[in-house]
Computed example of a mutant assay.
Amino acid sequence: MSDETLLEFPCQFAIKAMGKNNLEFDLLVIEIVRRHAPDLFEQAVSARPSKDGNYLAVTVTIQASSKQQLDAIYRDLSGHPQVLMAL
């Protein structure tokens, strides 16, 4: 895997995760991201339900410090059974 990236660190980076719309999904996403970005603020999180309300898209904006940090976040999100997709 290449460590090349077009991003310059540190930078603001939005991470989006989608899953079933339940009471805990947004908290789950926040907890996973916070493992790698402990300085995450509540204001950096937004959530939007799908048109029918069955799914929830959670966007978390972090101050990313490295490509390795982002890779670890995506690996943890993608590996969780409740996360259907991470962008």
Score class of each variant (00 low, 15 high):
Pro49Phe: 00
Leu56Cys: 01
Met85Gln: 14
Leu40Asn: 08
Val83Phe: 09
Lys16Val: 07
Ser50Val: 01
Thr5Pro: 04
Gly19Asp: 04
Asp76Val: 07
Gln12Lys: 15
Phe25His: 02
Ala86Ser: 14
Asn54Ile: 08
Ser46Phe: 03
Glu4Met: 10
Phe13Val: 13
Ser46Ala: 14
Asn54Trp: 00
Gln12Phe: 13
Ala47Gly: 15
Leu56Gly: 00
Asp26Cys: 13
Pro81Met: 04
Phe41Met: 14
Ser66Asn: 07
Phe41Cys: 15
Cys11Phe: 04
Asp3His: 08
Asp52Gln: 07
Ala47His: 09
Ile73Tyr: 00
Phe9Met: 05
Arg35Ser: 11
Ala72Val: 00
Ala14Phe: 08
Met1Lys: 09
Ala47Glu: 04
Ser2Pro: 09
Met18Leu: 09
Val60Arg: 13
Met1Val: 03
Asp26Ile: 10
Ala64Leu: 03
Asp71Pro: 09
Asn21Arg: 01
Phe9Glu: 06
Arg48Gln: 13
Glu31Gln: 15
Leu87Pro: 00
Leu23Trp: 00
Ile73Gly: 04
Gln63Asn: 12
Phe13Arg: 03
Phe13Ser: 02
Glu24His: 06
Phe9His: 05
His36Ile: 03
Ile15Phe: 01
Gln63Trp: 10
Leu77Cys: 06
Ile30Trp: 15
Ala47Met: 09
Leu6Arg: 12
Arg35Ile: 05
Ser78Asp: 11
Asn21Lys: 06
Ala72Gly: 00
Pro10Trp: 14
Leu28Val: 13
Arg35Thr: 12
Arg75Phe: 11
Glu24Asn: 12
Asn54Phe: 01
Leu23Tyr: 01
Glu31Tyr: 12
Glu31Thr: 13
Leu70Glu: 11
Tyr74Arg: 07
Pro10Leu: 14
His36Arg: 14
Pro49Leu: 06
Glu42Leu: 08
His80Thr: 06
Lys20Arg: 12
Glu4Arg: 15
Glu24Lys: 09
Ile30Gln: 15
Gly79Leu: 07
Ala57Asp: 12
Met85Thr: 10
Ala14Cys: 03
Ala86Leu: 02
Gln43Ser: 13
Ala72Pro: 03
Asp3Cys: 08
Met85Tyr: 06
Glu31Cys: 04
Ile15Tyr: 06
Pro38Ala: 08
Lys16Trp: 04
Pro49Tyr: 01
Lys51Pro: 04
Asp3Trp: 15
Leu40Arg: 03
Asp39Ala: 10
Gln82Asn: 11
Lys20Asn: 04
Ile15Ser: 10
Val83Arg: 06
His80Lys: 08
Met85Phe: 10
Gln43Gly: 00
Ala47Trp: 03
Asp26Gln: 14
Val29Gln: 02
Tyr55Leu: 03
Phe41Asn: 13
Phe25Thr: 08
Met18Asn: 03
Asp39Asn: 14
Arg34Met: 11
